[in-house]
């Protein structure tokens, strides 16, 4: 059966199409990564392999401080969004409410970042909140809640809530039940949600740009890269982008793995 199908022309076409899509998606990234090892400072001419630009990167104080800011923002906003988003998911799945509430909740995932960015900026200005890292963190929490909640909810979709009552029936309190029954069941979803949230926060530019205020002290990595490419792409930026890519990629794959594994196991 399998032997026979291998020569099916439709199958061959589909396989070719799949490869083409992957080429389209990953060749630009591949070029970027290759050029980050380019000796000369030119983006188009290969002149030999070198770690030089990675070294330069490590000496660039502006980039390092931006990287630190990004990590601070990503870690704190991830923790907050994971906590709030997971509890929200439990609440929403335990007592299903109307579709209206869901639509409102997922709005931050769908509405354009630029709109959200302007809205948040107006909001902070209205409340006379000084802008800085803290306002970026709050803004990232806003959209990350929606993502965490969505991921955790998928795990809870197939959750048999009678185990919650069974635990109470066997003498456990609600807190014990949460800790020993609900949490282990949703943990892979929570971790996956947190990883996704972290990646989104690291990559996020528009909202951070609007809500950062002025100064290097609240410049995140994407903002730093943006300001650098205005003077042309240097291999230093290629090196930076490669590292960010690698981290994001690893996290997304890990998140998928964790969530899938425990669905089957």
């Amino acid at each position: 059966m399998r032997e026979f199908k291998r020569f099916d022309p439709t199958r061959l076409w589909l396989a070719a199409h799949l490869r083409l899509v992957y080429v389209f998606l990953y060749v630009p990234i591949g070029v970027l990564m290759v050029l980050s090892f380019n000796k000369a400072g030119l983006p188009t001419v290969w002149s030999g392999f070198s770690f030089e630009w990675y070294g330069k990167l490590a000496e660039n104080a502006a980039i390092l401080s931006a990287a630190r800011n990004t990590i601070v923002v990503a870690v704190i906003s991830t923790i907050l969004a994971t906590l709030i988003g997971s509890l929200l998911a439990i609440g929403m799945e335990y007592r299903r409410r109307g579709a209206g509430l869901e639509a409102i909740l997922f709005a931050p995932m769908i509405i354009p970042d630029i709109v959200l960015a302007i809205a948040l900026l107006s909001f902070f200005t209205l409340l006379e909140v000084t802008l800085g890292l803290h306002s970026i963190i709050l803004s990232h929490v806003v959209f990350n809640i929606a993502f965490v909640c969505a991921v955790v909810r998928t795990r809870l979709r197939s959750f048999d809530w009678s185990v919650f009552e069974a635990s109470i029936d066997l003498g456990a309190t609600e807190i014990t039940t949460f800790r020993r029954i609900i949490l282990p069941a949703i943990l892979p979803g929570v971790i996956a949600g947190a990883m996704l949230s972290f990646t989104l926060s690291v990559d996020e530019f528009i909202i951070a740009y609007f809500t950062a205020g002025a100064g290097q002290s609240s410049t995140t990595l994407p903002m730093q890269i943006y300001s650098m490419i205005r003077f042309g792409v240097t291999p230093e930026i290629n090196a930076m982008a490669s590292i960010v890519m690698l981290v994001s990629f690893t996290l997304v794959i890990a998140a998928q793995r964790i969530n899938k594994e425990s669905v089957t196991g």
Binding site: S162, V163, E165, A166, I168, D169, A172, I181, P184
Partner: peptide
């Protein structure tokens, strides 16, 4: 319910999967 000396066997059995 967690203080009643009564136990319920659920229709779905509600075993703890993990």
């Amino acid at each position: 319910p967690n203080r009643r000396p009564i136990n319920l066997m659920f229709q779905s059995y509600a075993l703890f999967p993990h």
